[in-house]
Design a protein around this nucleic acid. Structure first.
Length: 275
DNA sequence: AACGATCCCTGTTGGC
DNA sequence: TGCCAACAGGGATCGT
């Protein structure tokens, strides 16, 4: 699933292709991908003829300012990936958006489940769209102190709070489990019950886990494989300690990894070493 | 405000 | 073997 490491890996592949590029045309094959706009045609209308100034990321959002004050924002949802192609390359199934760049390869958004989106926002729309996206979990991670303040009094499970993009943006279901495993905190623990040491451990685990994922090009699950824009898979899957390891031995204490459902999301953890 | 449930969507999987 | 329900999940939205 595309979480912060996968989105950042994607950004690094795409940046040299799109930065400075002139957008000649945008083809929308599935209107649902532009659902952030009132009309599907708004996306192509606003992007065509503009130049991409830069490609950044905040949490799981790709954010590309264009000239003229418009910002191109993309989200990969759960099954989205960008691919970089020559115009004649065969098209993958579920190629939902194709961006044509002058004298550059094409950028295609492939997304079977269409939970992702592509948008071109005015400044007001951008502020509204990103208003609920908190500080980036890698580049702007809050201190343990401010994280502790944010967690104080919260009754929701810490797992759910790590998935709440307002506190820190970028963790998804896989890396949240990995963070809690590393920090030795059980996913169901109400956020407000974490001790100061536990908050510090969680805070410290976030960049370690995210950077490890990033080093390996992200996590590609075997079903709907997340693919890098060049078609390769990330290889962090085999290094996961908790996610997906139900019934397997804990790499730390030898206990058995369990699967429980927290707020409707599968959560994998070791009852013996996560309290 | 905080929390939890529901919905969107489709490829894959598991049970009968 | 074949069919179908269940499942996966990020984020918007809604009810409490």
């Amino acid at each position: 699933m595309p979480e912060l490491p996968e989105v950042e890996t994607t950004r690094r592949y795409l940046a040299p292709v799109v930065e400075g590029a002139f957008i000649e045309a945008v083809e929308v094959r599935r209107d649902r991908m532009t659902r952030r706009h009132e009309r599907p045609g708004d996306l192509a209308e606003r992007m065509t003829g503009r130049r991409v100034l830069s490609l950044g990321r905040r949490g799981k959002f790709l954010v590309a300012p264009l000239d003229g004050g418009i910002t191109w924002v993309s989200h990969l949802g759960m099954s989205g990936r960008f691919s970089i192609n020559a115009p004649g390359d065969p098209e993958a199934a579920h190629t939902n958006v194709v961006i044509h760049l002058r004298s550059r390869p094409q950028v295609r958004l492939v997304d079977p489940r269409t939970f992702g989106f592509v948008a071109a926002f005015t400044p007001d729309e951008l502020a509204r769209a990103m208003g609920s996206v908190g500080p980036d979990a890698l580049d702007e991670l809050p201190s343990a102190r401010s994280l502790g303040t944010a967690l104080a009094g919260r009754t929701a499970p810490i797992k759910a709070l790590l998935l709440d993009q307002r506190l820190a943006a970028g963790l998804g279901n896989i890396y949240a489990d990995e963070v809690l495993f590393r920090a030795r905190v059980a996913p169901e623990r109400p956020g407000g019950t974490l001790t100061a040491d536990e908050v510090r451990a969680v805070r410290a685990a976030i960049p370690v886990v995210l950077r490890a994922g990033l080093r390996h090009g992200g996590t590609s699950l075997d079903d709907l494989a997340y693919l890098l824009p060049d078609g390769r898979t990330g290889d962090y899957l085999s290094r996961l300690s908790a996610y997906g390891r139900q019934g397997e031995p804990c790499r730390r204490c030898g206990g058995i990894i369990e699967r429980t459902v927290v707020r409707g999301r599968s959560s994998f953890w070791c009852r013996d070493c996560q309290q």
